[in-house]
Amino acid sequence: MDKILVTTDFSSNSKAGLRFAIQLASQHEYELTFFHSYYIANLTSMSDAVFADYERKEADKIQKKLNQFVASVYSDMEVVSKNKKCVINSAVFAESNIREYAQENKFSFICISTRGSGKFKKIFGTNTSSLISHSIVPVIAVPHNYRKSEIKSIIYASDLVNLENELKKVIEFTKPLKAKVEILHFNYPAEITTNKKTIDELMKRNSNHNIKLHVENINLAESLISNIEAVIKQSKPSMMIMFTQQNRSFFNKVFFSSNSANYSFNAKVPMLVFNKI
């Protein structure tokens, strides 16, 4: 069974990641592990033994808080919980804690909200961006205002490089959800066109998976993000899929362009990012 590590900082905004993971699990059998990274520093003169006892009691409180937090989201969604766990893990740095736990325990995906709240707001946003950039485990970044909605259609944004291998992963994710896939590609001026015959043959071989190719010329007056958002506004997909490090070009144009904000902070729909490494 595929496993999803769902992170939370207990903020109301972080509930979006939980809601999306629960929705995924309602459409396909996923095992959900709700995860909170915490750290308790010994800032007093407590002895090691006294601090260890204090830390244990605080960890028990955090575990109960996580259990109640997750239960409240299930209750609000009117969904009966199954195949779920609630785990807390101590580490100084939340992002590396999440990443290492997911990798060591062989999770299929990490699911995280794109924004926290209060004092966690900046840290949580940074965690999302850092996970997307460095995690070997694919990351699902969920907008903080996401509400329960059936996953019916997915945009897969691609530069058409390594399309066949990437499409296999896309289909593996979307097929159990019975969701249609729209491959989105933007043509740039003077860009070498990918072999049309090869793409046509690939589309024909996957014709039973409800996939269509959407190609349009890039509007150079706007950022790539704006071009993508325009298509999202028109197509209204349930989520979007991208791959990192596509020869350090397409992904970087979206995520690290000096002319645009990081998409993980502005996404209007949940976004699944596969790391090519």
Rank of each mutant, 00 (worst) to 15 (best):
Y146R: 04
E222Q: 13
R99G: 04
V170I: 14
I98Y: 01
K152V: 03
N208V: 14
S226N: 15
L177Q: 02
E182T: 14
A179Y: 03
V139P: 01
A157Y: 07
R205D: 15
T114W: 05
I171W: 01
D159H: 08
S129W: 03
I98E: 04
V231I: 14
N127E: 02
I192Q: 11
A94L: 04
S158Y: 01
A221V: 10
I171P: 02
E172K: 10
K121W: 00
I136G: 01
K196Q: 13
R205Y: 05
F186T: 01
S149N: 13
N97Q: 09
S117K: 09
I88W: 11
K197A: 13
A141L: 07
S223A: 10
P138K: 01
L184F: 02
S158Q: 04
H209T: 07
T198N: 12
N195E: 14
N206A: 08
S226E: 15
K152Y: 05
N195I: 13
S207A: 14
Y156M: 07
N195C: 13
A221Y: 10
I154Y: 04
S226F: 12
P176F: 04
H214S: 08
E104V: 15
N89A: 13
K197N: 14
S117F: 06
I140H: 06
N195P: 12
I211H: 10
K148M: 13
V170R: 06
S207M: 14
G116W: 00
G118W: 00
V87C: 05
E229T: 11
I136A: 09
P138Q: 03
E95Q: 13
K122A: 08
I110M: 09
D200M: 14
N219G: 06
N127R: 03
K106C: 09
I123A: 08
I183Y: 04
L220D: 09
T174G: 04
E216V: 09
L167N: 03
I110A: 08
K121A: 06
E164R: 11
E100R: 14
P176W: 05
N162V: 00
N97I: 13
H209L: 02
S153N: 07
L213C: 03
I112G: 08
K175H: 10
H185K: 05
K122N: 10
